[in-house]
């Protein structure tokens, strides 16, 4: 198991655990973390699991690839920043144990 902390837009922190190999989207959905909808089932097709990766973690997670479906979807989302990613595209490898993700105020 690896740990992920979701920080709500109001600042409330919620630490959850998830099996290695699942993604940050599952970490949120399996634990009913509010603000992560994940409509499409985790296949990078809807942009409703948008998160801001904590700046301390962005290098380990990796930044958004400019060219690809994830970027194409995020361009239509509200409140994107240079730390924006889709949680379904963050596999929870052991090196990400302790990851901190910020949930945007609204999920499109």
């Amino acid at each position: 198991m690896v740990k992920v902390t979701f920080v709500a837009s109001g600042g409330e922190r919620r630490e959850v655990e998830i099996d290695k190999g699942e993604t940050a989207r599952e970490a949120a959905l399996f634990n009913d973390v509010p603000g992560i909808d994940g409509d499409c089932g985790g296949v990078c097709a809807c942009a409703t699991c948008h998160v801001h990766v904590d700046p301390e973690w962005i290098d380990k997670v990796g930044r958004l690839q400019e060219d690809g479906m994830e970027a194409e979807l995020l361009q239509f989302a509200e409140g994107t920043t240079e730390y924006s990613r889709l949680a379904c595209q963050i596999p929870m490898k052991p090196m990400l144990d302790g990851l901190v993700l910020h949930v945007p105020e609204q999920q499109y």
């Binding site: 409509d39 499409c40 089932g41 296949v43 097709a45 809807c46 409703t48 194409e72």
Partner: peptide, 16 residues
């Protein structure tokens, strides 16, 4: 998972 349906489409043309 009630929102796992196709009515809005998926991908870049998904219903805005």
């Amino acid at each position: 998972n009630p929102r796992h349906h196709l009515s809005f489409g998926y991908g870049i043309h998904r219903c805005m």
